[in-house]
Amino acid sequence: MNLFPERNPKLAWREIDGEAVIISPEDSHVHELNETASLIWTSADGRHSVDDIADAMAAKYDVPLPVAKADACELIEMLSAKGLLVSPKQPEVQAGA
């Protein structure tokens, strides 16, 4: 599991009506995410952890945290399998932190 998911920098994207539309320039494939997956996508900046994202999902959709985390993990795995999220890596550490 990618603990600090990060968007694949080789993809172009825009958020349209709260949902992400992602272009893979290398093969011109277009991915469209639903609202929940889009929340993960927009949060996946390499600094927010899975727990952070699950917190945001629990708050937004008013679901218990364990349920949100299970959903987040499933979606992150799915997005990673499609190549939309890059491989796990350590989060950037702020200087002096």
Binding site: L11, A12, W13, R14, I16, I23, P25, S28
Partner: peptide, 17 residues
């Protein structure tokens, strides 16, 4: 559209929107 550059594809999406 013929470029695989991410920035150009971002620009295209922005333009189309």
């Amino acid at each position: 559209f013929f470029t695989s550059k991410v920035e150009a594809n971002e620009d295209l999406l922005r333009l189309l929107l």
